[in-house]
Simulated scan of single mutants.
Amino acid sequence: MLIDTHLHLIDRKRISYPWLEDVPDLNADWSYAAYDDMAQRLGIEGALHMEVDVDPTDIATETAMVAELMAQGGTLMRGAISSARPEDEGFEAFLDRLDLTVVKGIRRVLHVMPDDLSRSSLFRANIRKLGAHGLPFDICALARQLDIAIELIDACPDTEFVVDHCGVPDIAGGAYDDWAASINRLAQRPNVNAKISGITAYATPDWTVDTLRPYVEHVIESFGWDRVVWGSDSPVCTLNASLERWVAATHDLTAGASDDERALFYAFNAARIWDLAL
């Protein structure tokens, strides 16, 4: 069983995505129907929808879209990781309104925001509240921002965290040492997990499995098999690959693991972190 913990769907008729105009290769509708057709053939048996940095007025609409997909018979959709604004005074009221049968986690993209956003006392106080609600927080930060992420994590010891995309290493630029050291520091925090998701987007178009291997193996070695999860990052993975190729690369990268280790990485860790039924 393979659980995709990082699926983006885009419906431009229903929801506004202000950033898409700057990324023409992704500026299209990416439907659940098209994903489902491919995912079923690739052995993906469940998916979490990852928020797509929608206009703040459309956050509830995006969650409603996921709820509708979850209600369909035979659906792969297991829940939503919702966008939110922990920097706002209304965050606690926002949490209280959430349908936790649909919303399984929260993310606020940080890599495109000022570095100090997560350093405010209000932001940190609100992230601490996620622990009481049983909601993990996905961290999407650049490699150079991982030490700032550690500051947030240390301020919120009772909240579960998931570091997206292996911490966004600059694979294309060959950067490794500073990123690897930050991954080691992150892994020392027991409430942090790592998501190996769509890292082909950070490589050059001529990447191979061996290009990715040092990064993936370092994350797994640092966190251990019981704190890593898999994600497609579809459709972002299509920038330098395809969903099919990323799934194939994943199987190649884990070929030497035991059945139990692959089961943890592919599905069971996701079930633990986001309280999913398998």
Rank of each mutant, 00 (worst) to 15 (best):
A34E: 14
Y35H: 06
Y35P: 04
Y35I: 02
D37I: 03
D37T: 09
D37S: 11
M38C: 00
M38Y: 00
A39T: 07
A39F: 05
Q40W: 06
Q40N: 07
Q40Y: 00
R41M: 03
L42Q: 02
G43Y: 04
G43P: 01
E45S: 09
E45G: 12
G46V: 09
A47M: 04
L48A: 09
H49V: 13
M50G: 02
M50K: 01
M50E: 06
E51Q: 14
D53Y: 06
V54Q: 13
D55K: 14
D55P: 12
T57W: 12
T57Q: 15
D58I: 05
I59N: 08
I59R: 07
T61Y: 12
E62P: 06
E62I: 05
T63W: 02
A64W: 00
A64H: 12
L69A: 02
M70K: 12
A71F: 08
A71K: 06
G73N: 14
L76D: 01
M77D: 08
M77C: 07
M77A: 10
R78Q: 15
G79W: 05
A80N: 11
A80F: 02
I81A: 04
I81D: 02
S82W: 11
S83Q: 14
A84S: 14
R85I: 04
E87M: 06
E89Y: 12
G90N: 10
G90R: 01
F91R: 05
F91P: 07
E92D: 15
E92C: 13
F94A: 08
F94N: 05
F94D: 00
L95N: 07
D96E: 15
D96F: 00
D96L: 12
D96N: 14
D99C: 10
L100V: 14
V102I: 15
V102W: 08
V102G: 02
V103N: 05
K104F: 13
G105R: 08
R107E: 07
R107K: 01
V109M: 09
L110V: 01
H111D: 03
V112N: 08
V112K: 06
V112G: 01
P114V: 11
L117Q: 04
S118Q: 13
S118M: 14
R119T: 14
R119N: 15
S120G: 13
S120W: 03
S121G: 05
L122C: 08
R124E: 03
A125T: 11
A125E: 13
N126F: 03
N126M: 00
I127P: 00
I127S: 07
R128V: 06
L130T: 02
L130M: 04
A132V: 02
H133W: 12
H133I: 04
P136T: 06
